[in-house]
Design a protein around this nucleic acid. Sequence first.
DNA 1: ACACGACCCTGTTCGC
DNA 2: TGCGAACAGGGTCGTG
Length: 283
Amino acid sequence: MPELPEVETVCRGLRPALLGKQIARADVNRADLRWPFPDNFASRLCGARVRDIRRRAKYILAELDTHETLIIHLGMSGRVLISGTSPTTMYREHRAAGAHDHVVLHIEGDVRVTYNDPRRFGVMDLVQTRKLNEHRLLKDAGPEPLGNAFNEQYLEAAINGRRSPVKSALLDQQVVAGLGNIYVCESLFRARISPKRLCQNLGSRRISRLIPNIRDVLQEAIEAGGSSLQDFRQVDGELGYFQHNFEVYDREGHPCRRNDCGGTVRRIVQSGRSTFYCATCQR
DNA sequence: ACACGACCCTGTTCGC
DNA sequence: TGCGAACAGGGTCGTG
């Protein structure tokens, strides 16, 4: 579920609840997610104050005043929910502890941040802030697709000579950081590029079309609060709305939405993942 | 170096 | 209604 727009939505929701606030207690309810939690995880969080919250690729980075940064990845099914009982907060009331609530941060002022992840493909780690960029999960990440470094010259060089389909290349987090299956499908549709086209046959015109279409679809999804499939929620429990704007994702057999195209959305499998596209207008 | 499949784990949906 | 197979937005690892 969580690709760049969903992670960005979570970050934006966490900021008002956490910035400048102290973590009074951390309940860590199991030993691991995808990997073990770091040593003394709960005690290192306890008493820390949150100085900054930002996103890099699909990672949430919470910088603490203890010179450490909490790294959170939502995997496929990770969710973050904020609750509170204080009348000064706008969050829904605390719920009973649920299945798969693996970590609960108790924030000063009776606010809770709950991390829930049924499949446990998520990750949490705590590292020295000054070494953040050397972290194994972050050091090889490609440029942010919404940043200036992600431009035509960069992308052309990054995928030049690759033999793989463009779909696979765009899913590679070293090529560009933060895209996932949904937004790659949607970007390729907007750019009218077949997901099966090999990188080496893209040509500069298609590459230049790709850049603004990737940016636009991500920006629009962020503004819609992300996409809610299954039960992805924003941190306050609200749904995201961008799923209503999908043009190909999960629309197998439906008519292509491009004016006068007349094609039908197809589903194929590429490197084990579903790809949705219109073979009539994507070339 | 690159590209692909298997794998991690649980929940939901679909076909019989 | 029950049951197994297929599938799901993530990434890593080993293999050829």
